[in-house]
Amino acid sequence: MVDVAFQSGSAVSVAEQVDRAKVLQKLRLGDAAFRHLTRAAAVTVLVILSGIIFSLVYGAWPALQKFGFNFLIEESWNPVTEHFGAIAPIYGTIVTSLIAMLIAVPVGLFIALFLTELCPLWLRRPVGIAIELLAGIPSIIYGIWGLFVFAPFLQQHVQPFLIAAFGNVPVLSTLFEGPPYGIGILTAGLILAIMVLPFITSISRDVFEAVPPVLKEAAYGLGCTTWEVARYVVLPFTRVGVIGGVMLALGRALGETMAVTFVIGNAHRISGSILAPGTTISATIANEFTEAVGDLYTSSLIALGLILFVITFIVLAFARLMLMRLNARLGT
């Protein structure tokens, strides 16, 4: 060994070369294995999604077969006669989310405007963190608070006022008809508004901050007021991002379960009044799933879940496409 090495100068011995090849081979194998492992994990994300879709379709199949398209438009939800229709929960889901967005979108945008344009620098971080804390509170906390604090408050102070104020106004009188239950569509919508407010605020703040300062400074230089800068420079520039954020929040509102279940009243009917109890898809599933007897009942509830998933999937996909478009424009 020593001789060989000595004779061939600095050249590496045969045995050493074999060792080296072995080590390299091992590293290469390990490398390939790790690469495939990460790839498999990435594919798992897709497997989860397709698993969700397949299992929901499989579970919903008996109900869809029995009721067909009528499932989407029937109002009756009767476990005794085993006749199920989804229109009441779908209606409740959409109306509560609509109320939530009507309130949360303007308020959220104004808070974002405050945070990016008006707020003194030292206050920006604390207020931003506080708003994000609001986003971190689990939805069940909103639910229990809504049930014990917010609903009684609405029942005693706000709803009687609404009924009295709008009782004689056409159109609005049907909207605010009936006794003040406290719980109901309006309460659920208001709780949802508080819940999605931080999502809208933090996304719009982020996109507002992405506006190149030069653009804003140019507008200020022309003598624009803060509002004009926000309205004619910031908002047009960030429109896709804001729409994306709003859709993201809408996706949350549509699928939100616990906050709504506590205060919606779980009544399977469509009422013209937003003070009346109603139900949403998620609240129906949460309330009835463990108590559902019979395959058709369970299957109908899973079919509701499938409808919810399809609706939120479309909304969220649209939101992501919008946000991707904004990012592409910003070149990040």
């Binding site: 699928g255 998933f309 939120t312």
Partner: peptide, 12 residues
Amino acid sequence: ILLSAPSIVVGL
């Protein structure tokens, strides 16, 4: 999308 999918659907 999974990040903001309704959690009740995950339960189902």
